[in-house]
């Protein structure tokens, strides 16, 4: 696959595509949608100290039709999963999913042998773009997640990555 040469279209809209990608990346409106503990940290990220609005991502829309990114913040119970699926399907393309916190990644601390109530991770039924670990993740982690998503959309990172250590 990778070695095949793909013929490029005669008319290219690289600049336009780039512009659209830039627009999308800088205007990621999340869905107001909290499930559990992580939702509080999501709120904290939007509030005074961390201010997600700096990146244009602070417009929390209550209606799925108007939002671009779904932040799955919390444990997904089996009763809730169909509703989440519906919400995701209601969002117009292009749309992204961020799994915030261990519960949305894998079920987190609520996985044990014989558990009967939860779905072990959002990626069981949603195409997740960014995973943010933590229980709950700090607001900085969510901001980093948004930056990662921007990088995924535009292909370039807003700020240089800070290496650990």
């Amino acid at each position: 696959m990778g070695t095949e040469s793909i013929q490029s279209p005669i008319v290219q809209f690289v600049a336009l595509d780039k512009l659209i990608a830039m627009g999308r990346a800088n205007s990621l409106w999340p869905l107001t949608f909290g499930l559990a503990c992580c939702a509080i940290e999501m709120m904290a990220t939007g509030c005074a100290r961390f201010d997600l609005d700096r990146f244009g991502a602070g417009v929390f829309r209550p209606a799925p039709k108007q939002s671009d990114v779904m932040i799955v913040a919390g444990t997904i119970s089996k009763k809730m999963a169909p509703a989440i699926q519906t919400l995701y399907e209601q969002m117009p393309h292009p749309k992204w999913v961020i799994a915030l916190g261990n519960c949305a990644i894998s079920g987190g601390p609520f996985v044990f042998e014989g558990q009967y109530g939860i779905v072990e991770g959002a990626d069981k039924f949603l195409p997740v773009d960014v995973f943010i670990p933590g229980c709950p993740p700090r607001p900085e982690a969510l901001i980093e997640g948004i930056l990662e998503l921007e990088e995924k959309i535009t292909g370039s990172r807003r700020w240089p990555r800070v290496e650990a250590g």
């Binding site: 089996k78 009763k79 014989g114 558990q115 009967y116 109530g117």
Partner: peptide, 17 residues
């Protein structure tokens, strides 16, 4: 608390998921 169509009783000691 359980799904509307649930027919199991999870806190029974012989409950197996």
């Amino acid at each position: 608390l359980l799904p509307e169509d649930a027919d199991f009783h999870p806190l029974l000691k012989d409950f197996k998921a």
